[in-house]
Amino acid sequence: MLQPRNAIEDPRFFRIVAVIIAALFIALNLLLPLLVVFSEALSSGLHAALVALKEPDARSAIRLTLIVAAITVPANVIFGLAASWAITKFDFWGKSFLVTLIDIPFSVSPVISGLIYVLMFGMQGWLGPWLRDHDIKIIFALPGIVLATIFVTFPFVARELIPLMSDQSRDEEEAAVSLGASGFSTFWRVTLPNIKWGLLYGVLLCNARAMGEFGAVSVVSGHIRGLTDTMPLHVEVLYNDYQYVGAFAVASLLALLALITLLVKSFLEWRYADEIAATHRH
């Protein structure tokens, strides 16, 4: 069972205790909460859970979440590709500062991520009066939600691609250009195949976070049921209303999304380990 490693193995007793502690900690902290979600959703039977999901407000929430993700992810992919191309294929002053800027959303609280858009576009925000005069709604409407979600998720693709493309030398692209390829053609035929796994990871993570974002969206959305509630917000609404089965049913959908994301990620890492390692070692 617990295999030793020649001369510097840890004593057997220690190994067993360490594994048990680690396993218990993971089970308690991570596994149990996951199980609770499904257990509560199904506490009144599968039928009740499905009925809750078919409820009109739930359906709008699901629809809104999908729309937001459908806008956010492609936008962030384009940004990620542009930023990593500019950063990794060229040397310029201020490069590392730019990279630090891209990391900002990671160190900012989700609530603050929403707050800044309210400060810009809210009723008492900078552009608030102008927007009201022109009858444009950003806060408490789809555009605000999309903006906040973009803010929170845009580093994901870029952060996957930048180290990956930094590791790869520029030789191949330079060769393509010397052979007469245009910029776009070089990117499409030479760069893209080398980064496809990193790009896929980035998209997966970006999507998972875009669909699951709560804090930032909560601040900008106004919680207008049926209109500006995404799935995570709808979970909160139902939970605060004591509709536990409904809340956990929607939560289960999100949890399933998370599990699928993890599964695909693991599968890709396992199946294409060699290819991934190869692209890292250019």
Binding site: A22, A23, I26, L30, L31, P33, L34, V36, V37, E40, P110, L205, A208, M211, G212, E213, F214, G215, M231, P232, L233, V235, E236, Y239, Y244, A247, F248, A251, L254, A255, A258, L259, T261, L262, L263, K265, S266
Partner: peptide
């Protein structure tokens, strides 16, 4: 266990929130 470690990264915070509260 290795795969589970990533769960908090992938799970939406509201889902974790109500699960932990319960």
């Amino acid at each position: 266990i290795d795969a589970l470690v990533d769960l908090p990264f992938a799970l939406p915070t509201a889902v974790a929130g109500i699960a932990l509260a319960t």
